[in-house]
Design a protein around this nucleic acid. Structure first.
Lengths: 217, 217
DNA sequence: AAAAGCAACAATCTCGAAATTTTCAAGAAT
DNA sequence: ATTCTTGAAAATTTCGAGATTGTTGCTTTT
């Protein structure tokens, strides 16, 4: 893999895992030390990430980590409901037993982690583990739909969502209700009930639509 | 505006207007002549456009104009139905009289052009004119929704759609039924009938879901 | 004749530095 | 005291060249 691509993957990972502070400047000259490459290479990468929404770019003013924004989180949630709802319904229509199996497996993994963390909001490495498992579940959910475009769009939206939420504070990421809600989504998928899965995906994500008090932004 | 950005806008325009052949290589060294800049600058720009889906990139193999693909067109149509349906409904809820006025204006412009071209498939400059008017109408349709994310996503999808369709052959772009369909969408918007506008947007775009014979790809 | 190996060529990838623009702080003027 | 200039410092933008990798056509081998 080209250096360029390695850096892209690594930086994207750091961004979605909240390893930079919101609003922090991302200067090619500074980041060089982390990757041992030239500033131009990093500039290239940062431009790519800016098109994905993970980095803010302003002409002649450089790159920054996006700031936290309630409105953006709201918008991203709406998009997730839309894309995952549609993708899940398409998957129900097109997916076979193999898909059901993958989804069950993903749910099993996820619920196993959720059991372990109990009602404590996970932190650090555990948080990343849980977050990856949740991503896997939601990606598998739409995985049997035949639209690469939808999947790619969803991945971009999800990354932005995760970047926002993970830096917002871990207590908002994990909620005990998740366990039952994920189970409910799985059941609807196995029952191949499209309207029901739409509703359950909506209910599952809608909690992000109004996080009243206590949000640091 | 920085040179970088000028080139981005210009290249994007050329790509969505079908001024390159599908599958054609886009080599920084070759494109230099068009823009009088260095290859590195063009490489940067091409990377950005690849994230938008307007350019294909393969590691160590450079950039290419995406090939025509029935499947991709199908997927993009599905995404348009999803995004424009949702965006239009949100606009209906949030838009005021000013939005109705803008939409009427956009429709008036569009139908004026559609009258002029009659049933002949437009070509060359007229095609571009019509295509811009159609974009304006569809963008205004979702313009009053308060989600920048949805609008940005829609713009990216629409650009890819236009790139595919405009190079496919002009006869597929323009269809006489468009005139009535656009009118029907406008009416549903002014009536603020959400289910109806969803259905009409679907019917309007669904013609792209099955273009049976005679497609050059 | 077909396949494998090789060498010359072309394109991509990476880099560091020059040119341009912005930022910031100190001093002058109102 | 506030605003306006000025100039040095820092950051971004742009560039062309060297390093690396892929491609092409020719030769050799089986």
């Amino acid at each position: 893999m080209s250096k360029d691509n390695e850096i892209l993957v690594s930086l994207r990972g750091r961004l979605v895992n909240g390893q930079f502070d919101p609003g922090q400047r991302l200067q090619p000259e500074k980041l060089r030390t982390d990757y041992g490459c030239s500033a131009s290479t990093l500039r290239e990468t940062l431009f790519r990430l800016s098109t994905e929404g993970l980095v803010d770019f302003q002409e002649q003013r450089g790159f920054r980590v996006p700031r936290l924004s309630r409105k953006l989180q709201h918008e991203l949630t709406l998009m997730r409901i839309l894309l995952e709802g549609e993708g899940a319904c398409l998957s129900i229509r097109l997916g076979g037993v193999a898909w059901e199996a993958r989804l069950s497996a993903a749910h099993h993994q996820l619920s196993h982690i959720e059991m372990r963390v109990g009602s404590e909001p996970p932190a650090g490495h555990i948080l990343e583990l849980w977050s990856n498992a949740e991503l896997e579940f939601h990606q598998t959910l739409i995985g049997a739909c035949d639209s690469d475009t939808l999947k790619r769009t969803h991945r971009i939206i999800y990354n932005q969502f995760r970047q926002q939420l993970i830096t917002t504070g871990q207590k908002f990421v994990f909620i005990p209700e998740n366990v039952e809600q994920h189970k409910a989504i799985l059941d609807a998928a196995l029952d191949r009930d499209e309207p029901l899965i739409r509703r359950r995906i909506h209910d599952h994500l809608a909690r992000n639509l109004m996080q009243p008090e206590a949000m640091p932004v």
